[in-house]
């Protein structure tokens, strides 16, 4: 089995982003960028399947500008076998990303694509489901457990109120939730080794898909802030204020 893991370069989760005053977007200059945390979980899940002898090859792919190759290298340093960068300078929406990934999945003849359930920049939570639709494959979204059972994949999903278990016929799509695993750190020797692993660059337009945006972003604004309230000294004061001042009891 061959596994494809798409990874996205996003603003590091510890960074509090600033909205540009002119409403044109979020200020990304000199901001620390990292692999989307859910994608790290996806890489880890793929590596564990390989280590368990269920997969032969793990390919990481990213879509973006030249700098996105750093994220591919991170995946390689974690243990993926080879990387692909689909190069584009324009913003690509989840639908366009899914179309590009379909092209890559078909070219590489993979049987499983594991993706993060959402990217922490646009918070869309769409790409995996869209890719499943375009390939006509089943989807196991928000996965917290994963097992290959012959020609099938057993996926435990986090749903409202509890957990759901599904059996999917391979080839299939999985999107990862937080509890699936704890991703490994790349060791220094592995980071060095990763520099020698193959990383192929493809221009997005050679895949022949329409990547034009379908949403027009009119403005990006800062949400109304909340100001700090008051400190109360005791439980009695808290209950009395909740009752009389806030009126919520």
């Amino acid at each position: 089995m061959k596994i494809l893991v798409p990874v996205k370069r996003v603003v590091d989760f510890n960074v509090k982003v600033r909205v540009k005053p002119d409403g044109s977007g979020v200020d990304l200059a000199n901001v620390k960028m990292s692999m989307n945390p859910f994608d790290e979980i996806a890489v880890e899940a793929a590596l564990r399947l390989k280590e368990a002898g269920k997969a032969e090859e793990v390919i990481v792919v990213s879509i973006g500008p030249a700098q996105a190759s750093e994220i591919v290298r991170t995946g390689l340093a974690m243990g993926a076998d080879r990387g692909i960068l689909v190069k584009t300078e324009t913003t690509v929406e989840p639908l366009a990303v899914a179309k590009i990934l379909k092209g890559v999945a078909e070219r590489e003849a993979v049987n499983l694509v594991i993706l993060g359930k959402q990217a922490i920049d646009d918070d869309c939570n769409q790409t995996g489901q869209m890719l499943a639709a375009l390939l006509g494959w089943p989807q196991g979204t928000f996965a917290s457990k994963l097992e290959v059972a012959g020609e099938n994949l057993e996926v435990q999903r986090e749903i409202d109120g509890g957990l759901q278990k599904l059996m999917l016929k391979l080839p299939a799509i999985v999107t990862t939730d937080l509890r699936l695993n704890e991703p490994r750190y790349a060791s220094l020797p592995n980071i060095m080794k990763a520099k020698k692993k193959p990383l192929e660059e493809i221009a997005a337009d050679t895949l022949g898909v329409d990547v034009l945006p379908r949403l027009k972003v009119i403005t990006t604004t800062e949400p109304a802030g909340r100001v700090a309230g008051q400190k109360v000294a005791s439980v009695t004061e808290l209950v009395s204020k909740l009752k009389t001042e806030a009126g919520v009891l």
């Binding site: 639908l95 869209m130 639709a133």
Partner: peptide, 22 residues
Amino acid sequence: TAFGKNILPRVAALLDVMQVSD
């Protein structure tokens, strides 16, 4: 919801439409 988030992007892609989430 977990249900809506799971299903609707699949619908959107089949219709070749970009979804607006949340």
